[in-house]
Amino acid sequence: MHILDGVAVEGRKFITEPEAKRVLKAYGIESTKESLCQSAEEAVAAAKEIGYPVVMKLVSPQVVHKTEFNAVKLNIQNESEVEAIFNEMTERARKSNFHVNGILVAETATGTEFIIGSLRDKQFGPLVMLGMGGIFVEIYKDVSYRLAPVEPIEVRDMIMELKGRKMLEGFRGKEKVDIEALITAVVSVSQLLADFPNIAEMDLNPIFGNAHGVKVADARIMLA
């Protein structure tokens, strides 16, 4: 995989979000529609193409935890907001002397939030994690692990372990989740982890699942 090799050659450990999403795409894992923009004009055009409301994110190899740098803005409704946010984010990053790869303008995904992650164990090698996203993972640690790679039936067991699994069936009027698509995504991620022992950490968070499939809204990969 060129992307992972390229990153390694540059001596980087952290893979930027658009790079991570390209890696995922190679494994058939879909991400939200998005465009990396270099100017406010490009950002406005991209937002129009994708459709409002959009999400905007700063892409910089120095910004690993985007929320801590306030580098993610949600629910952006119109052109003037896009322009203002583009300028504010780039300005703030430059003041911190961060290299700016661009500003990502992305589709606002909807549905139930999930997280797919990884763990590398000394004895057992790579493990894939599936969890309910948002507060479920942060507060309740509603997650399940298996050794990678996994088979579809094993992902079904993982889903059965999640306390929040009722959310998948369309709890209280919420849209149902395409479970087969979720299973395929976990299987594919686990294969990626098994294929690349140099992936030390991976976080696909959040992933949005709805009746039409699952889409990765944010991705983070760290190399060993």
């Binding site: 763990l119 057992f124 493990l127 692990y145 298996r146 050794l147 094993e154 067991d157």
Partner: peptide, 11 residues
């Protein structure tokens, strides 16, 4: 890590 053991046993 017991997380890995637990996952492995189940799997």
């Amino acid at each position: 890590s017991f997380t890995a053991y637990e996952a492995m046993f189940k799997q």
